[in-house]
Structures are given as C-alpha cells and as structure tokens.
C-alpha cells in the first residue's frame, strides 16, 4: 500500500468547494427537479380526464408539491385579465351568501403543517368559527370568536415580513395571518396595485423581483389566508388584473385538479391557481433557496363553499374568544 498512501497525499490540500458556486449548482438542480414533475402530473391528469374526470374530485388538497418552471410561460396578459375577472365575479358573488366556508391546508415539502376550516359570516356582528388541526396534536380545536373589530391587534402580524429571502416559511406569523382589517392594505384600487407591486428582492443575491412577480407573491399570501374576506379578495383580483406582466397557463394542474395558473414570467417561483369557474384554489411558493436543507416547497390550498357552520360547533366550541386573531393553540 506504500504507493497508495503516498498517492493519497497528492493534491490533498485542494481548496474546499466554493459556497456560492455550490449554491448555483444546487439551484440548477432544483429548477430541473421541479419542472418535470409537473409534466408527469399533467400526463396523469389528461389520462384521468379521459377516464371520466376523476382528477376533478379533490376538494381538499394535501401534501402535493406542484409548480412550473417552464422557460417559456404560455398565455398572455389579456388572458390573465379574463381569469381574474372570473375570480372577481366569484368573490363578489360570495357576498350574497350568509357564510363563506373555506378549507385551508398548508403544507411544506409535502408535509401537512396545518389545516383549518373557517366559516366567515357576512353579518359583521356574527361570530366567526374556525376549526383547526395540527397533525400530531389532539384532534381539532374549534374556536368561536366575536367578529374582528378595527383596532384588534391584527396589523402587528406582518404578512410580508418574509419577502426578502425568497422562501416563504410557514411561520406562526404566516399561519396566523389575518388580513381583513390590516391597516397596511390600501383600499383604493390604484393604491392597492401600487402596494402589491412595490419593490421586492428575492433570494440570497437579492435579485429584484419583477413587478408581476412581486404582485403574485403578495397577492398569493393575502388570498391564501383563510380569513381573508370576499371583499378583500375581490379588490385583490381587480388590482391584479391591472398589473402588467402577469401571464396565464390554462392547462395547469393543481395537485391533480385541472386549473388555470397565473404566474409572472419564466423565472417565477410563485403561482396562483384557479378553478375554471374562477374559484381561487391556492398558491404555491417554491423556495429555490441555496442553503443545504433549506429548500422549501410551500403549498397553501384553499377551497370555497358557502355552507353555514355546523350547529354543534357554535353550541360547544373548544374555546371562545373575543378576537378573530387565530389563537396559538
């Protein structure tokens, strides 16, 4: 072994791999990894459609990672506007119902972090109901709380606090996000558009986000919040429809469900998904972060209907509260 032992010393003092170069290589791998998965799911979806539309059956979407990294986004801003007009109509129609019932699932890399059903009353004085479940804990926790009031401590939860690093981590703040009366969100359409598109940087290299990308990311977080009321959804959809750089893919796939997706360009990491009738399905944010172990694929799926809360929840909730701030269970 003498020659081998001596050979072991040859160039043994080679410099360690450069962290920046490794991150770049890792990012290339991530981007390659995410695209083909969707392509496969699309094939599955088309097959399912031929077999009778099974793919449309999922109402609650759990633990599926999906996103596109196509180099050439399809669609046009005009088509995106049409999608958003449909979504606006759906959100506006919700105002006619006594309740908006949402089912919201947040996953990270395929693991369910939190699920919640929320019944939001149209009556501003009616109680709100939420039943949430954290996997591994003791069953669902149901809260009935008074309608939120201006002055509730909601604005202290800054939904945009994680914009800078390019990865949306479902921190407690994000999960607890309630934005309906967040004073930071402007009410005027033009002001809301300006607010959604204000400068944002992404990733470790602090790359400026495009206007469309910033809007998609911010809108996604508002829309994915369970308690965002229909009125705010309507305003966000309207504002998005005025922002250039938002494109549409009419052949998208959201965890096996046919969908229309809105994105903002080929280098996007965020998408909004809608059912063909304009119902908002959810958003996906992929963190093409470069630090080992930190790549996060977050999916926030939301489904709507207009059912009233079950009477037994109103009669005997686990907790009662005086604020619509989601309690820290």
């Amino acid at each position: 072994m003498n020659d081998i032992t001596l050979l072991k010393t040859l160039n043994a003092d080679v410099p360690e791999a450069d962290d920046v170069a490794l991150r770049r290589a890792r990012r290339r791998l991530i981007e390659k990894a995410v695209g083909p998965a969707v392509a496969r799911r699309r094939r599955y979806r088309r097959m399912a459609v031929r077999l009778g539309g099974v793919a449309a059956a999922a109402a609650v979407i759990v633990g599926i990672g999906a996103a596109r990294f196509d180099s050439n986004p399809v669609g046009s801003p005009a088509a995106a506007t049409e999608v958003l007009q449909r979504a606006t109509a759906v959100a506006s129609a919700a105002e006619k119902h006594a309740y908006v019932h949402t089912t919201h699932v947040v996953t990270l890399d395929g693991t369910v972090l939190w699920t919640a059903e929320t019944w939001i009353p149209r009556d501003e004085k009616a109680p709100w109901v939420q039943s949430s479940t954290v996997p591994g804990e003791d069953g669902p926790v149901t809260w009935v709380f008074d309608a939120p009031q201006p002055g509730d401590d909601l604005a202290s939860v800054d939904p945009m606090s994680q914009d800078g690093d390019g990865v949306t981590r479902p921190s407690e703040a994000t999960i607890r996000l309630i934005s309906p009366i967040n004073d930071d969100i402007p009410r005027g359409e033009a002001e809301l558009s300006a607010w959604l598109t204000r400068p944002m940087t992404l990733g470790h290299d602090r790359k400026p986000a495009s206007t469309g990308e910033a809007a998609i990311r911010r809108a996604g977080r508002i829309l994915a919040a369970t308690l965002t009321p229909p009125e705010l959804r309507t305003r966000v959809f309207k504002a998005l429809s005025t922002i250039k750089g938002v494109t549409v893919d009419e052949d998208a796939d959201f965890a096996g469900r046919p969908a229309v997706s809105l994105t903002s360009g080929h280098d996007d990491r965020s998408q909004l998904f809608f059912a063909e009738d304009g119902t908002f399905l959810g958003s996906i944010t992929i963190g093409a972060d470069d630090d080992p172990g930190s790549t996060a694929e977050q999916q926030s799926a939301l489904t709507y209907d207009f059912a009233a809360p079950p009477a037994h929840l109103l009669a005997s909730p686990t907790h009662r509260g005086t604020s619509a701030v989601v309690p820290n269970n």
Partner: peptide, 28 residues
C-alpha cells in the same frame, strides 16, 4: 421519483465530496 425536490438531499450529502475528488484532478 414522485417528489423530485427531495433529490437535493443527495446534493447536500455528496456535492462537496465529489467536488474535492474532481478538484484534485482538474482544479477547483
């Protein structure tokens, strides 16, 4: 195969070792 992004875990485990092996031969 079903969750493509998990492949990055392999990168995290082995990229530096492979880099070292290759760098000793052709430079970093």
């Amino acid at each position: 195969v079903e969750q493509p992004h998990v492949f990055t875990a392999l990168f995290d485990r082995h990229a530096r070792g492979i880099h070292r092996f290759i760098a000793r031969r052709i430079g970093a």
